[in-house]
Design a protein around this nucleic acid. Structure first.
Lengths: 223, 223
DNA sequence: CGAATTTCCAATGTATGCAAAAAGCGTTCT
DNA sequence: AGAACGCTTTTTGCATACATTGGAAATTCG
């Protein structure tokens, strides 16, 4: 038995939730796709109860949308919604960076440096890049030491990634990412909250423009 | 039968969740109090399924804490946690105010004015004051037209209210609230996002100092 | 008398049964 | 041919049964 991959979660519902979030993040579950309790049951070989748990949590966090009756589909990220996500991300990421600058211990700085070093090595594909990117930002959330920041920032990250599901196939690794991360790290190392906040703001905004541009292209020239 | 009070929710789980959140907000459920599925079943006369739904959602939103095994208690808000709540609130409330200033229609302004007028009439007790206060801020969240802001701001509001559960009996209606609200309204009416953000920041910070002061008093002189 | 252990019980995790509502679909009527 | 109607099938909402885990209490030993 056992669930093959993934880290051992204590409860099935939790495990299903985590796996579903990953599927949503990496685009395996495309926007507007239908998701039913039954589909999760078969996909993860669990009963309806844990499946329901995961679905309801994903719904309340905005990853899923309910269509008329209780049926659910993967949330579609149109432009208005993308703007909402990035307005919120800017506020939360800036706060995270500012708090991290105030609170980072030497051990935290070492960890961040290691991630930066990995990023400097260069990545072969989008997946690797996204993984390192995630490590960097999640690390900052953790250093901020604020559970609300962590929780919300994680959700917004995945939500923003879902935009890629709307613009699939585009390789959006960009050089500015490394420079931005360096700037954020420097500010954190210096304990300069204002600078960290500003660097984070720049970083979020660049990502915003890039993602929105992709989304607009697709909207202009659809099927 | 039917559920006596409250607005008609379509699903039992939703209804239980809403009622629980209200009980948490108004302090009926005190911090550190145990909450079990069974207790909700009896309290709202539903089966375990909707009770579980509500509990898990409340848990994931930080209103409840799990103790060792899956048992849950009402989250206790110590000082560190209060600081987390207010750090986050500042970011989110400022964003809400800024967005509201950008987007408010005349109808929105009229609604805000009406609430302000109600507040100017004065309130006899804490409950009335809190209700009007809630209306004002919820209205701004709505005007911001950002579901992430709305969702997170609501959660943070209730979480901050839970601090009152830790400091019960204190009547914390204060004169500055009306002045602050007027300032926020003015900025929104003028479409001045920066001013709205700054007014909101002042407002949140005043609330923060007040609440933290109460919490400190109680911590210094406990049982 | 206090501490450790064992036993019992309560609460949660999971699965499933039942009924109602909704979607899908074919048929029929205009 | 298109639209409207009714039936079937699927899916969800709610309730409950079963098993397992963790805690509390009572008992026993030092």
């Amino acid at each position: 038995m056992a669930s093959s991959n993934s880290k051992t979660e204590d409860s099935l519902g939790e495990a299903v939730y985590a796996k579903m979030r990953e599927l949503l993040r990496n685009g395996t579950l495309a926007p507007a796709e239908r998701v039913s309790e039954q589909s999760l049951c078969k996909l993860f070989d669990v009963s309806r109860t844990p499946a329901r748990e995961a679905l309801q949590r994903l719904l309340s966090e905005g990853f899923l949308t309910t269509t008329g009756g209780g049926r659910m589909i993967v949330a579609t990220i149109d432009i208005a919604r993308a703007e909402e996500i990035y307005d919120m991300r800017e506020a939360v990421e800036c706060l995270a960076a500012r708090l991290a600058a105030k609170r980072a211990q030497t051990a935290d700085l070492i960890e961040l440096r290691a991630i930066l070093a990995d990023q400097e090595k260069g990545q072969d594909n989008e997946t690797e890049f996204l993984a390192i990117n995630d490590r960097f930002h999640r690390c900052i959330y953790r250093i901020s030491n604020n559970r609300y920041v962590q929780h919300t920032a994680e959700i917004l990250r995945v939500s923003a990634e879902m935009i890629r599901g709307e613009t699939k196939g585009r390789y959006d690794y960009d050089a500015w990412s490394l420079d931005d991360h360096r700037a954020i790290y420097e500010a954190i190392e210096n304990g300069d909250g204002a600078a960290a906040e500003e660097a984070a703001r720049q970083h979020v905004r660049r990502g915003r423009f890039q993602r929105l541009a992709l989304l607009l292209e697709r909207t202009d020239a659809p099927a």
